[in-house]
């Protein structure tokens, strides 16, 4: 066969089918079968009826919502102040906000843990607080970057027009800048919310032994229970799809791809 550019897509398509599509198909198979390979709804009904797993779902949502809110409250003003400032060192500060992404997260959490140890005395006393601080610390750059990008791309003429037409700075912010930066907020929220529901290592490292959704997969994995783990993975996947649809896929790839 004659070589053509089109055929270059074939190896990658095969790769994606084997390593992305096939694993998901097997998640479906394992989630709806038992140890004997018989069809069962047990894993699904168990998750939605067992108080323990429901508690985990609730706790994950609580942690994720609080973490996302704290991240947003810190990241939005920071991104806004930086994007609208006339500082000479703007690009340097932006780089400082991005740089933590390139330092291994486990080492950064170790550093945070040492500080919290000094501040709190006994880490185990404040599990929820530590989880929120740890995740905020870990995920904040992912919130700042998309918001900064959106705000700095806004046409300054819009803000000036609002001021010329008699709006005060607060009105200008609330009715022009804030609504126009919603895509950046959505993209940042989706980059923080999902990891906050699943990244259980941050909790482990900060002595918070309460389960979140990710920990359930971890514990099923440790117990070689592929059926239970697959069901949790599917439930997470369904939530991720729903969430992505809701946030309108707000430049998801743009945000993580803009890391460089």
């Amino acid at each position: 066969m004659r070589f053509s550019r089109k055929s270059l897509g074939i190896p990658y398509a095969v790769f994606l089918v084997i390593f992305v599509a096939a694993p998901l198909l097997f998640l479906f198979y394992y989630a709806f079968t038992d140890g004997q390979g018989q069809f069962t709804m047990y894993n699904l009904t168990h998750f939605f009826t067992d108080p323990n797993t429901l508690g985990t779902l609730y706790y994950s949502f609580t942690i994720a919502i609080v973490t996302t809110a704290v991240c947003l409250l810190l990241a939005y003003p920071a991104a806004y102040f930086l994007a609208t400032s006339r500082l000479q060192t703007k690009s340097v500060i932006l780089m400082l906000f991005i740089m933590p992404m390139w330092i291994n997260f486990s080492l950064r959490i170790t550093a945070l843990k040492e500080i919290l140890n000094v501040l709190e005395g006994n880490l185990a006393m404040h599990p929820f607080l530590n989880a929120v601080i740890g995740m905020t610390y870990d995920f904040m750059p992912f919130m700042i970057l998309p918001i900064y990008t959106t705000i700095s791309r806004l046409d300054e003429a819009l803000r000036e027009a609002a001021m010329d037409l008699g709006a005060d700075p607060v009105q200008t912010f609330l009715r022009v800048t804030l609504p126009l930066s919603v895509p950046g907020i959505l993209s940042g929220v989706s980059m923080v919310f999902l990891p906050a529901m699943t990244n259980y290592v941050v909790l482990d490292m900060l002595y918070n032994s309460t389960y979140i959704m990710g920990s359930l997969i971890g514990s099923y994995f440790a117990a070689y229970n592929w059926h239970g783990g697959s069901m949790i993975s599917l439930i997470l996947l369904a939530m991720i799809c729903l969430f992505t649809l809701l946030t309108g896929n707000a430049e998801e790839e743009g945000a993580r791809g803009a890391l460089l």
Binding site: L16, T198, N199
Partner: peptide
């Protein structure tokens, strides 16, 4: 087809990606 499949690991949680590859 390629773009859609490509998007899955990007939006998926790493826990799920890792677990599903381990399962397969």
């Amino acid at each position: 087809f390629i773009t859609t499949l490509n998007q899955i690991p990007v939006i998926n949680a790493d826990v799920v990606t890792g677990f599903s590859i381990c399962v397969l």
